[in-house]
């Protein structure tokens, strides 16, 4: 119960550290990688951990640590951009629907609710089947898939705020829709919107790595962590770390974000002193 960082629960603090770590790796990973990209460093494929290759080697004898550090950019970066797009569009539409109400709200909600009932991986598969899986296409697909979820969450939050008297006061004053959205509603839902961003980021990471694992996501020569699991799946029979390590990397990232988000949401709930 002291001030500052010690007020974070241990699980939340751990989540924060993990998230910061992977964000740094996405930014600086290639600079820190012990071996040049693609450089085959060992004749030994599916090697176990060694001093030269702390996470073993892959199916071509490349250093797994290097591969994972370089892959961080694709897993973290692509997902972050896609989630950011989804949240931005979803939040804007939701604020608009909640503030204007009436037909705008009814039509938007109906359409986006239909989209939400498409299971995400399924929808992604259909799109990939049709337009392929270039990185911009993957970003766009993931963003489109998660707009309805972001919309639904933010709309539910915003509708509660719109019903509050201070919004009525602003309306009666003659304020325009844009002012209501920006100044009256948004500041009161920032934290839950960020929480929702975190959750959605996890879904996007799982979706994109799932696609890559199926061989339908990010294509060579680029490789995210899901692709790394796929290309090394043969190593499973030998118990090679090359299969497990990239999958574990994904797990640490998503668990880290989830712990952080859980902690933030919990603090919001516990902050009410009455």
């Amino acid at each position: 119960m002291n001030a500052g960082i010690t007020r974070l629960r241990p699980a939340t603090a751990a989540g924060l550290l993990i998230v910061l770590f992977w964000a740094a790796m996405a930014a600086f990973g290639p600079l820190l990688a012990p071996h040049a990209d693609g450089g085959v460093m060992s004749a030994q494929v599916f090697d176990a951990a060694s001093r030269a290759a702390p996470l073993g080697t892959d199916y071509l004898g490349r250093d797994m640590l290097t591969r994972i550090l370089i892959g961080a950019r694709y897993t973290v970066g692509v997902a972050a951009v896609a989630t950011g797009l989804a949240s931005l569009v979803g939040t804007t539409l939701a604020l608009c629907a909640a503030t204007v109400g009436g037909w705008t709200d009814a039509v938007l909600s109906r359409l986006l609710d239909a989209l939400i009932s498409l299971p995400s991986l399924l929808f992604a598969l259909v799109v990939v089947a049709s337009v392929g899986s270039s990185i911009p296409m993957l970003v766009a697909t993931a963003a489109v898939i998660y707009v309805p979820g972001a919309y639904r969450t933010v709309r539910a939050l915003a509708v509660n705020i719109v019903a509050m008297e201070f919004v009525k006061v602003a309306r009666a004053r003659g304020e325009g829709t844009l002012y209501l959205m920006r100044a009256e509603i948004l500041p009161n839902i920032v934290l839950p919107v960020l929480t929702d961003f975190g959750l959605r980021f996890i879904y996007v990471v799982l979706l994109l790595s799932g696609l890559s694992f199926l061989g339908l996501g990010i294509q060579p020569p680029y490789a995210d962590w899901g692709s790394l699991v796929r290309e090394n799946i043969e190593g499973l029979a030998y118990g090679a770390p090359a299969v497990i390590m990239p999958a574990l990397a994904i797990a640490t990232l998503t668990i880290g974000v989830n712990l952080l988000v859980d902690g933030l949401a919990g603090r919001r709930g516990g902050g009410d002193g009455r």
């Binding site: 509050m164 008297e165 201070f166 009525k168 006061v169 009666a172 004053r173 003659g174 100044a183 009256e184 500041p187 009161n188």
Partner: peptide
């Protein structure tokens, strides 16, 4: 016209934007 008619509500705290 809007300026000349103002409204004050029952729930004082709900009528104030908590972020302002």
């Amino acid at each position: 016209q809007l300026r000349r008619v103002q409204i004050v509500f029952q729930m004082a705290d709900m009528a104030l934007n908590p972020a302002h």
